[in-house]
């Protein structure tokens, strides 16, 4: 089986971002960027499938600015065999990303495309589902376990009532949740090796796909402030506060 795994460069999940005072967006100028955590789980899943003899090639793809090369390197250091970088400095909505990924799928003909379930910047949680829709492939989103099952896959998904297991015929789309696996750390030797792996860098524009944003971001605002409150001195004081709400009367 051949696996394509999509990785995205995002503001590091530990950064507390700031909204620009003029409401034009989020100030990411000096922020640390890294690979989206969910994408790391997707890469780990792909590499594990290869290590267990279920996949002969893992291709990592990213769409983003020139600097997004960093996150491809992470995927390659973790064990992906080669990379594809579609360069664009534009803001790309999930629909645009899905269309570009579809073009890559048509070239590469993978049996499985793994993506993160969401990216921690936009939190859209859309791209994998949209790619599945465009390709008319089966989808298993929010995966917490992937097994090879004959010539298909068995995927456990995290859903609102717990978990549910599905059988998928390939080709298929799977999006990774955080409990799917424990992504490996990579040390310098792997990174050095990764730098020698082939990366096909092209402009997204070459694909001739309309990727203009469809949504207009009018403004970006910080969430309402939570002021913080009072220290409670004892458990019985807390009992009074909680009992009032629980009794269904006054709101706390």
């Amino acid at each position: 089986m051949k696996i394509l795994v999509a990785v995205k460069r995002v503001v590091d999940h530990t950064v507390r971002i700031r909204v620009r005072p003029d409401g034009s967006g989020v100030d990411t100028d000096n922020a640390k960027f890294s690979i989206n955590p969910f994408c790391k789980h997707a890469v780990e899943a792909a590499v594990q499938l290869a290590e267990h003899g279920h996949a002969d090639e893992v291709v990592a793809v990213t769409i983003g600015p020139a600097k997004a090369n960093d996150v491809l390197l992470v995927a390659l250091a973790m064990g992906a065999d080669r990379g594809i970088h579609l360069v664009t400095e534009e803001r790309t909505e999930p629909l645009a990303v899905a269309k570009l990924l579809k073009a890559v799928v048509e070239e590469e003909k993978p049996d499985l495309v793994l993506l993160g379930k969401q990216a921690v910047d936009d939190d859209a949680n859309q791209t994998g589902q949209m790619l599945a829709g465009l390709l008319d492939w089966p989808q298993a989103t929010f995966a917490s376990a992937i097994e090879v099952n004959g010539d298909g896959l068995k995927v456990t998904r995290e859903v609102d009532y717990g978990r549910a297991t599905y059988a998928l015929k390939t080709p298929a789309i799977v999006t990774a949740d955080l409990r799917l696996n424990e992504p490996r750390n990579t040390a310098l030797p792997q990174v050095m090796k990764a730098k020698k792996k082939p990366v096909d860098t092209r402009t997204a524009a070459e694909l001739g796909i309309d990727i203009a944003p469809r949504l207009m971001v009018e403004k970006v605002a910080p969430p309402p402030d939570r002021a913080g409150g009072q220290a409670v001195g004892s458990v019985s004081e807390l009992v009074d506060i909680i009992a009032e709400v629980a009794a269904g009367g006054e709101r706390a």
């Binding site: 507390r16 971002i17 909204v19 949504l215 207009m216 009018e218 970006v220 969430p223």
Partner: peptide, 13 residues
């Protein structure tokens, strides 16, 4: 919400 709710964007569709 975006960025784990640290910003709220208003979009026109």
């Amino acid at each position: 919400p975006i960025y784990a709710g640290n910003a709220i964007e208003t979009v026109t569709c």
